[in-house]
Design a protein around this nucleic acid. Structure first.
Lengths: 338, 338
DNA sequence: CCACAATAAGACAGCGTTGTCAGTTTCAAG
DNA sequence: CTTGAAACTGACAACGCTGTCTTATTGTGG
């Protein structure tokens, strides 16, 4: 039924071991032999069984991507980046949703590894910072790379962007546009990036000599409705902000919706800024001023590191970019004279 | 290193075959024995190797989900539905992006199956209607289920919704709101659903006695920018439509953006309707009147069919729902008197 | 209490590869 | 030529399970 390495070896007139050598690009195969084998592989349309390879050899040609993130756009980009790298490397990707809050998470990850023999694991935030998972992976000695982890102290590679600087950049941009009362919507508490973005916001305010006001900071969950709720709270303040910086695009979309509903003109009366530059940022009106996070590249690079020389720990920072679109503008005149 | 069935058998004091029986819930194991084995499994934290199971047995405990769809929200829901079902069944999901336009698609799918030994395949539109893929799957005799296929004539199960009726419902709703000139933005030509939605639109017009006007129909690609382009074309007509029905939400978001840019009030001067009810529909302003397509359920049900009794072909239709939100309203007065 | 079926458990081969090791050919230097 | 190392190739045993077949052990009607 199934075409096996045996069939190939018969057609090529060599031993199965030689076919295996060709498949794995090992040394010590005469060019003429290699060609005959390759021809046979092509003729029979042979694809080696990953199961058999995993069982017999040291590699499984599979890696796992573990994520728990409720922004579909973000996940989509992460998947795409990892996938692209896997394709280049001839490796399969197992995309695995997870729940960082689950007490069985580490056990599930362990089970996944045992079951599938994956060669490595990509962790996406916030799974990057689930201690139980990290312990489990280290105990197994399986290579893994983290995308946008909260801390870099682990002895494992990671790729990330400078969330603090990015939030600082955005806040500074708003200050330069004349805004003094800038609302901030914090991200999901599970994500370390949330704190860092908040820190960047405060740092920019400090540097510009703008007093930090706790009532202008609202909690959020990185989703649309929490953004809307936070916007309602901010806009019903006695002295509402002239700009709102939501720490991701989904929440910024929520802010826009509330502004529209309350008939507040954006950006004339209120500037709105997001973070991530997901497709959503350009799908809303006005299109969002945001931080372009190189999500796809982060994922692509992360997977690349997984396949790179073993034992070398690399922390690679990718550059973000401030994207100015229609949702932000000069502060209203009356806000400029205190 | 790795915990194997042998370790379990040693701890439980039985043969590996008996452990295998317990794992696979086979008959002929005394309750007491089963309990001892289960205890050993738990104590050792044993997860059986899928590779070994696939190689030795008839099942691999893996299925593949193949898709090529450029709406991240849609894919996300599909993945989630299939994933949920897989989790219940204790089976792994291989999410596999693909390109229906690629001439090597069928070969890739074949390779995937050979490599991974998957027990079954879920096809998401438009891969559902790639003849080469269907031929390849049938040739291999591997079970597969299609989500929202263009045709139901194949001898394989499928789940779908009534795209014609849904588009008819939406169009009728707009007509009932007094609209006579209703623009329509067609979906991606690769998707059979595109034709069906167009047909539903025409059917509703016909029944209501509204003349069909070809210039009111614009092509699209199911993405934001093609929706925007189509809107520009429609709104610059000599006599522009009072409503635009985009055949998915992404394109409807594009229409909204153009309306905002051209300073056309929605829904006062222009009603905008979408299709799918992805999260995007509620993230834009005004929130979209749309058709709720039970995407997640379709996927969940599809995976369920894959695991159900073999050989039974089932075509299951899931119910859609017209969701009226703020983006549509009565036609402008002057449009009501011809 | 016996015969015989139903139930329960184990021995062993084999799934399709790779790792190891041994054997054969090639080739350059003496 | 001869020799020895380097280049090549193959035989065979794993890998961790399940399928098949065989061998107990238990239960049941006559």
């Amino acid at each position: 039924m199934r075409v096996t390495i045996k069939d190939v070896s018969r057609v090529a007139g060599v031993s199965i071991k030689t076919v295996s050598r060709v498949l794995n690009k090992e040394r010590y195969v005469r060019a003429a032999t290699r060609e005959r084998v390759e021809a046979a592989v092509k003729a029979l349309n042979f694809s080696p069984s990953l199961a058999a390879r995993a069982l017999a050899g040291r590699r499984s040609f599979q890696i796992a991507l573990i994520y728990d993130n409720h922004s579909p756009f973000y996940i989509h980009q992460i998947q795409e980046g990892v996938w692209a790298q896997c394709k280049e490397q001839g490796v399969r990707m197992l995309a695995q949703p997870a729940d960082v809050a689950s007490p069985t998470l580490a056990a599930e990850v362990g089970g996944l590894i045992d079951e599938t023999h994956v060669d490595g694991v990509i962790l996406s935030s916030p799974v990057t910072d689930a201690p139980a998972v990290l312990v489990e992976l280290e105990r197994r000695g399986i290579p893994f790379v983290r995308i946008s982890p909260g801390t870099n102290h682990a002895l494992t590679s990671s790729v990330f962007m400078d969330d603090v600087q990015a939030a600082d950049d955005m806040t500074t941009h708003l200050i330069n546009e004349g805004h003094k009362r800038i609302g901030f919507i914090v991200g999901h508490p599970n994500h370390m990036a949330s704190d860092q973005r908040l820190f960047g916001y405060r740092r920019a305010l400090d540097r510009a000599g703008v007093a930090f006001e706790p009532s202008l900071v609202q909690p959020g969950q990185f989703d649309f409705s929490s953004g809307a709720a936070a916007a309602e709270a901010l806009l019903s303040l006695g002295e509402p902000p002239t700009a709102i910086f939501a720490s991701n695009d989904d929440m910024a979309a929520g802010v826009l919706a509330v502004a529209h509903r309350m008939d507040i003109a954006v950006p004339e009366a209120l500037s709105v800024a997001g973070f991530d530059d997901t497709e959503l940022a350009s799908a809303v009106w006005p299109p969002l001023t945001t931080i372009r996070q190189p999500t796809r590249d982060l994922a692509y690079t992360a997977a690349g590191l997984l396949f790179s020389e073993e034992g070398v720990v690399i922390h690679r920072r990718l550059q973000h970019e401030l994207i100015v679109r229609g949702s932000t503008g000069r502060a209203p005149i009356d806000a400029l004279r205190p």
